[in-house]
Design a protein around this nucleic acid. Sequence first.
DNA 1: CAGGATCCAATTAGATACTG
DNA 2: CAGTATCTAATTGGATCCTG
Lengths: 126, 126
Amino acid sequence: MDTEDEFLIGPTHRELLDQVLDKWSLSVLSELCERPCRFNELRRAIPQVTQKSLTATLRRLERNGVVEREVVSTRPVAIRYRITPLGKTLRPPIDVLLAWASANMPAITRARDAFDLREEESRMGG
Amino acid sequence: MDTEDEFLIGPTHRELLDQVLDKWSLSVLSELCERPCRFNELRRAIPQVTQKSLTATLRRLERNGVVEREVVSTRPVAIRYRITPLGKTLRPPIDVLLAWASANMPAITRARDAFDLREEESRMGG
DNA sequence: CAGGATCCAATTAGATACTG
DNA sequence: CAGTATCTAATTGGATCCTG
């Protein structure tokens, strides 16, 4: 237990969430929650990701135990990535996050517009 | 209930979550959920953050409408940051995330150790 | 106190080229 | 197919100095 009485985040949790919720992880996990995928399937499903970043993301997720890399010994070997049981437990949190994003997108867009407008005005009047 | 084949994240949601869940945002939001804070209070509460990053984080959160910047016209002006009603709606998702991190930290540590061990072995065994 | 401005180091991303 | 290796461009982070 920490000495803090309230909820504080701490470097350990921060680091973990960084690894599991980073730029491409959410998309990869979303894909793999639906079905196991091969490398190039994932690339096609997430067109913006580069090969390099996808490789890095998969390695990181594998290291953290939420994704599993399976070598299928067919002719020119296939690699199959699948979500692990531990990885599946991430889905509710992710869904809550996505639900929040969907529900509040309009309010956030309004907030951004208002902020940008105030900024612009202060540049002119300031 | 499960979504079927079509839950994809999309650049808009990704960008939003990037802005609101980035490296320092979670810590800042956690602090501000408890009480309004001044700039240097936040710095002390999150010792690792630099002034530059804290400023950037606060601006971003303000722009997205989850944090409010209030100028208190006392003698050498005080600035008070507080969470907005919109920002408060972020707390359940964050709590779910933190709960997940806490609950699964041991499993993840084991996964990391196992992965690192496999890596090390494969470096030795060729 | 609450930053802005600036310089620099380090990390990260993108584009190619190549391999078993 | 599933990557590794490499180079470079762009972004980020830290340290320092400065101000109202």
